[in-house]
Amino acid sequence: MIDPALVSALSALMFVIGLGGAFTRKNAIIVLMCIELMLNAANMQFAAAAVHHGDTTGWVYTLFAIAIAASEVAIGLAIFLAVYGQHETISLDDVDVLKN
C-alpha cells in the first residue's frame, strides 16, 4: 500500500507540470493534453483522499471525472478542427481574434 501522501505529492507535481505546459506551449493540442494532465492530477488527489479517509465517495468522483474528461477532449478536438478550418492553424499565438 502506497502512502496516500506520496500519491498526493505526485498529483501536485502533475498539476504544476500541466499548468506550466498550458501556460507556455503554443500548440493547442499540447495545451489540451496539459489540461488533461491537470484533470488527472485532480483525479489522483481524489483517489488519495479516498484511501486516506477510507471513503469510496472519492472513487466515484474519479470515475465521473474520467467520463467527463473523455467528452471534453472530444469537444476540444472538434473546436480545434473548426479553428483550423477558419485560420488554417491551431497555434495559439496566431489565433487571437478576441484581441481588444
Binding site: 498550458a22 501556460f23 507556455t24 495559439l92 489565433v95 487571437d96 484581441k99
Partner: peptide, 17 residues
C-alpha cells in the same frame, strides 16, 4: 477593459489560474 483582452489563450489560462 479592452486593453486587457489580448486574444492569446495562454493569457486567459493565466488569468483563470
Amino acid at each position: 477593459v479592452r486593453s486587457m483582452t489580448t486574444g492569446s489563450a495562454r493569457d486567459y489560462i493565466l488569468m483563470v489560474a
